[in-house]
């Protein structure tokens, strides 16, 4: 097994790493970079808790090898709010609408939905459901998450 040197660009910051190729992006984010906001719920691409954005597109970080992600822009939940601590409007809406319960699915769901809002600033309920379908949530029944997205969409011009 040959380790590989690469640079991962995470939340706009470059990290030079020397990695065994089998390691998933999820494990490297959590264990090498200390970005534990990305959650491991199943390690098999079934739950969406590890959703991150790869060049803006939501993917399950558990199904991406870290060595595959070199040269791509990786966004994790830690990179969503601005550096001065200002939350993303969607994060604010999650808080306001009671879209958070246990919170374990929340980072992944926020990222999936931010990707949606970038593509489709005024999504329909069906589009929100579709974008959220890869993020399992066992607590909320999704209703208040959908409400939160709607509120952001409605307030955008």
């Amino acid at each position: 097994m040959t380790r590989q040197s690469l640079v991962l660009t995470v939340n706009g910051k470059n990290h030079a790493l020397d990695l065994a190729p089998h390691r998933s992006l999820l494990d490297v984010l959590r264990d090498e970079l200390g970005l534990t906001g990305t959650k491991k719920g199943c390690d098999a691409g079934d739950c969406g808790a590890c959703t991150v954005l790869l060049d803006g597109a939501p993917v399950n970080a558990c199904l991406v090898l870290a060595v595959q992600a070199g040269g791509q822009e990786i966004t994790t939940i830690e990179g969503v709010s601005s550096s001065d601590g200002q939350l993303h409007p969607l994060q604010e809406a999650f808080i306001e609408h009671g879209a958070v319960q246990c919170g374990f699915c929340t980072p992944g769901a926020v990222l999936s939905l931010i990707a949606l809002l970038r593509e489709t600033p005024r999504p329909t309920r069906a589009e929100i459901q579709e974008a959220l379908a890869g993020n399992l949530c066992r607590c909320t029944g999704y209703v208040q998450i959908i409400d939160a997205v709607k509120s952001v969409a409605d307030s955008s011009k």
């Binding site: 959590r30 906001g37 830690e78 939350l87 808080i95 958070v100 919170g103 980072p107």
Partner: peptide
């Protein structure tokens, strides 16, 4: 009243430390 959850901010920002996040 519609008081926001006290733990919501940590959860939406990924800062909340669940057991597996402890080092």
């Amino acid at each position: 009243k519609g008081v926001p959850r006290v733990d919501a901010r940590g959860k939406v920002t990924g800062q909340t430390k669940y057991a597996a996040d402890i080092r």
